[in-house]
């Protein structure tokens, strides 16, 4: 996978069918998407990865979702909460991505959680939708928060993902647009492209070294 949009919401969560999303996003330079509420499938080299989103800030809900996704074919995405919640979910096996950190309190993602995230190989999602939709102080706060996360990422090297969070064809972004928007929060182009390709490593993480022969 060269470039993956880490979260899109096809119908019934959005107004676009998953087939249409595939047609459109392929033209925009992606070769895979994570479709929330869909099952995974592949067509002509394009991969749709099924995604499960846990919105409730309850550890029990996350554990249940991780159990349901025990086959590991789908991506488990969890909305961030307060510091204690984030610290708990990062240790649950099967959680792949934590998103919406910009909506939480400032102390909800500190250097300890950043280190745990790197150790457990849990990615932090940079949702680009607030940079497009919001204006003024709200966008400034989001950029500030993302820059804070990027600073921790440079230090602890936890995986990052980039998502358009699109619910419609109109909200989809091309690879070039995503790289441009990521530059607003201090992500350089090589790092942005690495973040777009990070999903593969989350689903099939590298195992321990095996001696062959």
């Amino acid at each position: 996978m060269i470039a993956t949009d880490a979260t899109v919401f096809p119908s019934p969560l959005g107004n676009t069918s998953v087939r249409r999303m595939v047609l459109e996003i392929r033209e925009l330079g992606f070769d895979s998407i994570v479709a929330i509420g869909q099952t995974g499938w592949e067509i002509d080299g394009f991969t749709v990865i099924g995604g499960t989103l846990v919105r409730e800030p309850q550890v029990k809900a996350v554990i249940n979702a991780a159990r349901a996704n025990s086959s590991g074919t789908g991506l488990l995405v969890v909305n961030a909460g307060n510091n204690g919640f984030n610290r708990a979910i990062i240790q649950i096996k099967g959680v792949h991505v934590i998103r919406h950190l910009h909506k939480t309190e400032k102390n909800s993602f500190d250097h300890i959680i950043a280190r745990m995230s790197a150790e457990n190989h849990v990615a932090i999602d940079i949702d680009l939708r607030p940079l497009v939709i919001s204006r003024g102080i709200w966008r400034q706060k989001t950029i500030q928060r993302y820059k804070d996360i990027i600073g921790l990422c440079e230090r602890f090297e936890f995986p990052l993902t980039l998502s358009s969070n699109a619910r419609s064809v109109v909200e989809l972004k091309s690879v070039r647009e995503m790289v441009n928007l990521a530059s607003l929060v201090g992500i350089a182009e090589p790092d942005a492209r690495e973040a777009l390709a990070a999903i593969r490593g989350l689903i099939t993480p590298c195992g321990p070294v095996q001696v062959v022969g």
Partner: peptide, 23 residues
């Protein structure tokens, strides 16, 4: 042109209709 392209990515609606301008 880089700044302009980034700004174009943040256009989301015109006359209350959803739109996208992709450079």
């Amino acid at each position: 042109e880089g700044w302009l392209e980034t700004a174009l990515s943040t256009v989301s609606c015109v006359n209350d209709q959803c739109i996208s301008l992709r450079s």
